[in-house]
Simulated scan of single mutants.
Amino acid sequence: MNPIELILLQAEQVFGNKAKADAWLNQPKASLGNQSPIELARNEVGYLMVKDALERIDHGYAG
């Protein structure tokens, strides 16, 4: 799987469904430099930032 596919899968697991995951992934986030998570995840550093954000959300630390 490529990084984008991994982020899509992780987001669906965190949010419980594809629609909520897509909404989160496609909206710019201040915590991610006002970029959308899906755009940011296209390079290795951005991928790691988005992965970390999803892990924090999954553990109840951020939104």
Rank of each mutant, 00 (worst) to 15 (best):
E55N: 10
E12F: 06
W24R: 01
K51L: 04
R42K: 14
A41E: 03
Q10A: 10
G60C: 09
G46C: 09
I4L: 14
F15C: 11
L48G: 00
N17D: 15
G33T: 07
A30S: 15
P37W: 06
A30P: 04
E39P: 03
D52L: 04
N34I: 01
L8T: 06
G63C: 10
M1W: 05
G16L: 09
Y61D: 13
G60L: 15
Y61I: 08
A41G: 03
G46Q: 09
N17L: 10
I38H: 07
L25V: 03
Q35R: 06
V14P: 02
Y47A: 02
V14K: 06
S36N: 10
P28T: 05
V50Q: 02
A11Y: 13
G33D: 10
L48T: 12
W24I: 02
V45Q: 06
K51N: 04
N2R: 14
N43D: 12
V45E: 05
I4M: 11
V45M: 11
I57V: 12
E55M: 08
R56F: 01
A41H: 05
E39W: 08
G63I: 12
P3H: 14
A11F: 08
Y47D: 02
E44F: 05
L25K: 00
M1G: 12
P37E: 05
G63V: 06
G16A: 15
L48Y: 04
H59L: 15
K18A: 13
E44N: 14
H59A: 13
G33F: 11
W24M: 01
N26E: 06
G46F: 07
K20H: 08
S31D: 08
I57G: 00
A62C: 12
D22S: 14
N26P: 01
Q10T: 11
D52M: 12
A21V: 11
S36R: 10
F15I: 04
A19G: 04
A53K: 02
D22G: 02
L9K: 15
V50F: 01
I7H: 06
H59R: 12
K51T: 00
E39G: 01
